[in-house]
Design a protein around this nucleic acid. Sequence first.
DNA 1: TCCCATTGTAATATTTAGCATTACAACCAT
DNA 2: ATGGTTGTAATGCTAAATATTACAATGGGA
Lengths: 143, 143
Amino acid sequence: MRISTKCSIALHLLVLLGVFKDKKLTSEILAKSIGCNPVIVRNLIGSLKKAGIVDVQRGSGGAYLVADPETVTIWDVYQAVDTASLGELIGVHPNPSKACPVGSKIGRLLEKPFSLIADSIQKTMSCYTLRQMLDDYADMRSK
Amino acid sequence: MRISTKCSIALHLLVLLGVFKDKKLTSEILAKSIGCNPVIVRNLIGSLKKAGIVDVQRGSGGAYLVADPETVTIWDVYQAVDTASLGELIGVHPNPSKACPVGSKIGRLLEKPFSLIADSIQKTMSCYTLRQMLDDYADMRSK
DNA sequence: TCCCATTGTAATATTTAGCATTACAACCAT
DNA sequence: ATGGTTGTAATGCTAAATATTACAATGGGA
């Protein structure tokens, strides 16, 4: 239910695709840099492919960016990759008493502040692009 | 590492304390409305007590609010109750390759956008007070 | 003063979610 | 056709979240 490492891993691999455009990057190579199992990478690439962010050929292999880094935000990546919605990010206790006047309403009571939180996360994620991350990376290299 | 149900449960019990000011509310009664084990409630009340939000006597029992609902925000409650910091809310893959130029920098690369997200959550939480929740509750009752 | 209901807290158990791994069919280029 | 690759299902493993049990410490009232 939390924001899983999928998002971090996806961003990692997108940066790799952005930096090593010329190289053939298989799931195995990517997994080595990320430090995870190649199957994880394949699944994530599958999700990113569905979202129109990357592409990859089945037999020959090698993933590459198809979307402009300028237009790809962390929110896009998160949505593509993490099945859980932000609405489930904050755990809500599942068995409040329906007999109690507070217990019967607590779910609806929490909805309001929690959805405001989800909105703010979405907004912040939508402001950060892959281009910014690639620029940040370039800055680190040059120093 | 996610925002656990502790926060929801704590808010639930604070609303109970705010609504049933006159009644003696033991951990058992509170737990019944919440639908969890009384020990969970006791531990949470302990945390909220340390934060100066509620108080309770040992032998006699019965918890009550000591802070003004106007001044208690969801952020206060979250901080009091959830040990994990928001920085750990978004999972980061733990074994990136140090040999890879991207792998060796991904941690620092992710820090920037992820801390912006944490900030926005904190900000939103800080805007919502217990008073608002009590008002929301009253609104629901009156309709 | 002695019960009794209650809290505080430690220790342990249970459940669930996140992540890793294995396995293999489908596929493509050479 | 072969070798390297992807897509995906099935399973296993680990760690974190939550629940439960147990009991000493406390305080108020009979």
